[in-house]
C-alpha cells in the first residue's frame, strides 16, 4: 500500500475543499490544534460538528414548518447554525446561513427556504468530502493521522 500516495490524495481532496470555498482558514486553525495529546483532534471536531449541525438543521427544518413566518425564531436558529459553521470554517455553509438571515431580515420566506435548501446541500457535500478525507488519512496509517496532513 502506498501510504504516501494516500496522503497525497487526502491532501488533494482537502485542497479542493479550500479552493472551492467549502472550508476556510478556520479549518487550518483547528488543524493546528492537533498534537500528540490528541492525534485525531481534527476528525473528532468534525464529527462533533456534523452531529451538532445535523441536529440544528433538523430543528430549523421543524421550525420552518411549525412556525411559519416566525422570522425571529428562524433567525435565532440560524444564528446557532452559523456559529457552528464558523467553528470548523465551513465557509459555504456559513454563507448560506448569512443569506438565510438576510432573508429573515427582509421577511422573505422564499429567500429563506431557498437558502435553507442550499444550506442542506452544502452540509451534505461537505460531510461526504470530509468523510472521504479522513478515511484516506486513516488508510494512510497512524502516521498520517498523527501528523498534520501534507498540503
Amino acid at each position: 500500500m502506498d501510504y504516501s500516495n494516500l496522503r497525497r490524495q487526502a491532501a488533494s481532496l482537502k485542497k479542493g475543499l479550500f479552493d472551492q470555498g467549502h472550508l476556510d482558514e478556520q479549518f487550518r486553525q483547528v488543524e493546528d490544534l492537533q498534537d500528540e495529546a490528541s492525534p485525531n483532534f481534527v476528525e473528532e471536531v468534525v464529527v462533533v460538528f456534523f452531529k451538532d449541525s445535523g441536529r440544528l438543521i433538523t430543528n430549523l427544518e421543524q421550525a420552518l414548518e411549525k412556525y411559519p413566518r416566525d422570522f425571529n425564531r428562524w433567525d435565532a436558529y440560524m444564528q446557532q447554525l452559523k456559529g457552528s459553521c464558523s467553528s470548523i470554517g465551513a465557509s459555504r455553509m456559513k454563507n448560506e446561513c448569512m443569506s438565510f438571515r438576510d432573508s429573515c431580515g427582509q421577511r422573505n420566506v422564499e429567500g429563506c427556504m431557498g437558502s435553507f435548501q442550499k444550506l442542506k446541500r452544502e452540509h451534505a457535500v461537505l460531510r461526504q468530502k470530509l468523510e472521504s478525507y479522513f478515511q484516506l488519512l486513516r488508510q494512510a496509517g497512524p502516521a498520517g493521522a498523527a501528523t498534520r496532513p501534507v498540503m
Binding site: 490544534l33 483532534f41 473528532e44 451538532d52 457552528s84 470548523i88
Partner: peptide
C-alpha cells in the same frame, strides 16, 4: 458555550 464544536475547540486552544 452551547455549541459543542466550539466548546471542544476552545478547550483545546485554552489548554494549549
Amino acid at each position: 458555550d452551547d455549541d459543542p464544536t466550539w466548546l471542544k475547540i476552545l478547550e483545546k486552544m485554552l489548554r494549549k
